[in-house]
């Protein structure tokens, strides 16, 4: 009985991980922006991390890094070929006007901090 229970719980946990990190991802709260948004870099995450913007529309992403860990020091938009150094506690503005709809991921240098800019 216990053996079965442990196995069921273990497999359920595996499923939960798969569901939470891969399948259910699209349910993260999306913040729609018009012109400017401040993105906090703190405690290992970008807040907010899921941003939506309009196509052909100028926006400014303001990164404020409050996380002293060196991992947080750069934000990279791989597909846009943009990267910015983020000095501690100093707002860094990134102005974008994206002409192509799609999802643009932004990450730290090591890919541990992750965020997504969706352009529609």
């Amino acid at each position: 009985m216990i053996i079965l229970l442990v196995n069921v719980v273990g497999i359920a946990l595996v499923c939960l991980i798969i569901w939470w990190f891969w399948i259910n991802k699209s349910h993260i709260a999306t913040i729609k922006i018009d012109n400017l948004i401040e993105i906090k870099v703190k405690d290992g995450v970008y807040q907010p991390s899921n941003i939506e913007a309009k196509i052909n529309h100028p926006i400014t992403l303001r990164f404020v890094r409050d996380d002293a860990s060196p991992c947080a020091e750069t934000v990279v938009f791989q597909s846009l070929n943009i990267s910015k150094q983020l000095p501690l506690h100093e707002p860094v503005d990134l102005s974008l006007n994206i002409k192509k709809a799609g999802e643009y991921e932004f990450t730290c240098q090591m890919g541990m901090y992750r965020g997504k800019l969706t352009v529609k």
């Binding site: 990190f21 991802k25 290992g44 991390s49």
Partner: peptide, 12 residues
């Protein structure tokens, strides 16, 4: 950090 990442469906 782990908790906050978890909340936005990432892990580090």
């Amino acid at each position: 950090g782990g908790w906050k990442a978890l909340r936005v469906h990432t892990a580090n």
